[in-house]
Design a protein around this nucleic acid. Structure first.
Length: 339
DNA sequence: AAGCCGGGCAACCGCAATTAG
DNA sequence: GCTAATTGCGGTTGCCCGGCT
């Protein structure tokens, strides 16, 4: 077969781009009805269209094809898309193949304009389809020298006691997770406290309780098995679950379950395992920070990254973190923990 | 009434895979 | 097996429209 020497969609050929006119649509339709659509470049030529084959193919598959179903997506279709996306990710064509009459482009647009937002509003990460706790603070931890991190954890943890008790709300879980992750990080960096002192000779004052805890954990006393590799960059560490009660708590809690359209998809598994650092860090880049509240429908706890830090009257990331952990609700929460 | 802004969607872009000479 | 055209796919862009100020 002879091959054309020119590229199929070369703008320098003066081919038309942009929206299709009804006349062009008709020409394309007529041509496809007459000759079929084996070779799109040929189709374009035969139809007398000054368009590249690619453009013709797109117009046909996304708009002119007679089997295209138009209009709003039904509840069933929406549910199917959600399920398939959870399974396949952004494989729009694969998803479209399971939805008769819907194009990949249509589904992609529907996802980006509706479903993604819907999931975010429900506190679900649209990439992972897992509940979002957050992310930004944990992300921010990655760039902070260990001595500052230790100091912050020291401040947060010791002031509020290190015990983990049963918890029933997502907010509490989120806080537990923050704490847990900070401690996981501290616990599992291969760096010992002594090494930290050595590497970061700046004054590092640890609460004796925390220091004792860190030493005990760094000595391998933690009864919990190693989990995934940490997402903290430049730190070759292994995560361990530090807080047994948290794991138990998560098993008892059904808070996240309520997020998922009434399904029990995420309901009874161990949160500690599912939401260790890798899950806390959203795959998507900075987005509004969502902490689920007792009332899953409220958005009152959505805090923008800007609000989180720049509006803070405090001066450091960890002061801000402390602030976050220190609102009225938190006081009650911490009181419970202490008790 | 005019301008601004954001949402929705059609179409384009660029890359990878496939096909055919 | 190599090369180039074609096709398929996912991401992105830009236009249009409606709502708000």
């Amino acid at each position: 077969m002879e091959r054309s020497s020119t590229s199929s969609c070369d703008e320098t050929n003066g081919l038309k781009k942009g929206p299709w006119t009804p006349e062009e649509d008709q020409k394309l339709l007529d041509c496809i009805q007459k000759y079929g659509h084996g070779n799109w470049k040929e189709v374009s030529k035969l139809a007398g269209l000054n368009r590249c084959g690619k453009s013709c193919r797109l117009r046909w598959t996304n708009y002119l094809r007679p089997d295209i179903k138009r209009g709003t997506f039904s509840e069933e279709e929406e549910q199917t898309i959600l399920e398939l996306h959870a399974l396949l990710g952004n494989k729009w064509s694969a998803i479209a193949s399971r939805l008769p009459g819907r194009t990949d482009n249509e589904i992609k647009n529907f996802w980006n304009t509706h479903l993604k937002k819907k999931l975010l509003q429900k506190g679900i990460d649209p990439t992972t389809h897992m509940p979002r706790t957050d992310n930004l603070l944990i992300n921010s931890l990655a760039n902070i020298p260990p001595d500052q991190l230790l100091a912050a954890a020291n401040n947060i943890c010791i002031n509020n006691a290190l015990a983990c008790r049963y918890s029933t709300t997502a907010t509490e879980l989120a806080k537990m997770l923050y704490l847990g992750n900070i401690l996981q990080f501290l616990n599992t960096t291969s760096t010992s406290i002594d090494q930290l002192h050595h590497q970061y000779p700046s004054p590092l004052i640890l609460d004796p309780q925390l220091e004792a805890l860190l030493h005990s954990n760094s000595a391998g006393i933690s009864p919990y098995p190693p989990a995934q590799t940490s997402t903290f960059p430049n730190l070759n560490v292994t995560q361990t679950i530090l807080c047994p009660e948290l794991e138990e708590t998560s098993i008892k809690s059904n808070t996240f379950t309520q997020n998922i359209n009434g399904t029990s998809q995420y309901g009874t598994s161990s949160m500690c395992n599912n939401y260790s650092i890798t899950e806390l860090v959203s795959a998507s880049s900075p987005k509004p920070f969502v902490v689920n509240t007792e009332d899953q429908t409220t958005k009152s706890n959505i805090i923008s990254p800007k609000d989180q830090f720049s509006n803070s009257s405090t001066s450091t990331t960890f002061d801000a973190l402390g602030d976050l952990m220190d609102d009225e609700a938190s006081k009650y929460y911490w009181k419970q923990i202490i008790e």
